[in-house]
């Protein structure tokens, strides 16, 4: 499969890249890892006249932790690959949910090139990182002709492939507030095979203290035309003993928030069923981890 012709650009800085994007207008498309865009181009569902490859832009790379007043954060450059996310021990200590989820994305070859920025910016409801970023309450930085702005992951997604990113903007960084030390986490994903998108997936982040849930955050993947941040599901867990009644309430709230479509991964009823199973597993594992980690801290 041969894509339509285009001109290739490889800017060395973010300013140069946004300049090119402004100059070339809507005929240009930025290229990160290419593992969503290139297949689309091969099918000629996308035919940009200019490709702006971001691989040489050093300021779009890397993972940095800051510990400021009022809680620190992790800042991840958009061109950081899934492989680099998995390999970072510092990230695994601070936000272990990301390694757990990244290992469930695609396959090794795709993870060497696929980037977190591409994964969140593309707006594909099948991608895993958007739901994860909503669960973590991350913010995306967008650089464009009018400077830089920030949009919360929970506000970013409008519908399939439609996001708050304007033409001419490049998603440059992802800022994740550090979760509480000792928090519990889990990403549960059912997929038909390695490399497939989720039939349903659930991300859970919660804290446990004295047998009660302090705070909880729940997001779901590939169960609507955007990722679903299920605020009511988190609220059903927060303050509870995380027992059967609270988990049932959280699952009911999550199922009310999703809107899956029937496709070759199954009919709507099956997806609702799997969403419930994934969420129950994620809550159970996050609870177990938070309880274990709380016990470790008191030893």
């Amino acid at each position: 499969m041969i894509p339509a012709p285009f001109e290739y650009h490889r800017p060395a800085s973010l300013a140069e890249a946004t300049g090119l994007l402004a100059e070339l207008g809507e005929d240009a498309h930025v290229l990160a890892g290419g593992h969503s865009l290139i297949p689309m181009m091969k099918l000629r569902l996308a035919a940009p006249e200019h490709l702006i490859d971001l691989q040489d832009i050093a300021e779009l790379k890397g993972i940095a932790r800051t510990d400021g007043e009022g809680g620190g954060e992790i800042v991840i450059g958009a061109m950081t690959t899934q492989h680099e996310l998995i390999a970072s021990d510092e990230l695994a200590r601070a936000v272990p949910l990301i390694r757990e989820a990244a290992l469930q994305i695609a396959d090794p070859q795709v993870r060497y090139l696929g980037t977190i920025g591409g994964n969140v910016a593309n707006g594909d409801p099948g991608n895993d990182m958007p739901g994860l970023m909503q669960c973590l309450d991350a913010a995306f930085e967008l650089d464009g002709p009018n400077g830089r702005r920030r949009v919360a992951a929970r506000e970013f997604y409008r519908s399939a492939y439609v996001t708050a990113r304007e033409d001419g903007e490049i998603l440059s960084r992802i800022r994740i507030p550090l979760p509480a030390p000792g928090h519990g986490f889990a990403y549960e994903k059912l997929k038909r095979k390695i490399g497939d998108y989720a039939t349903a997936a659930a991300a859970v982040l919660l804290t446990v203290s004295g047998g009660r849930c302090g705070s909880a955050s729940v997001a779901l993947t590939n169960l609507a035309d955007t990722p679903v941040f299920a605020a009511d599901a988190g609220a059903a867990l927060a303050g509870s003993d995380l027992g059967a009644a609270a988990v049932d309430a959280a699952v009911a709230a999550a199922l009310a928030a999703i809107d899956p479509a029937a496709d070759n991964r199954g009919p709507v009823a099956f997806k609702q069923h799997v969403a419930g199973v994934m969420l129950r597993r994620a809550i159970a594992r996050a609870t177990e981890r938070a309880t274990e980690r709380a016990a470790e801290q008191t030893v």
Binding site: R10, G34, H35, I38, P39, Q109, V110, L113
Partner: peptide, 26 residues
Amino acid sequence: DTSHCGACTVDLDGKSVKSCTLFVGQ
């Protein structure tokens, strides 16, 4: 030819990549 099968895998700067899903310029 759709980045699933891995038959086109080559090593590029220490990474295994599917060469069907990479432009020569990259």
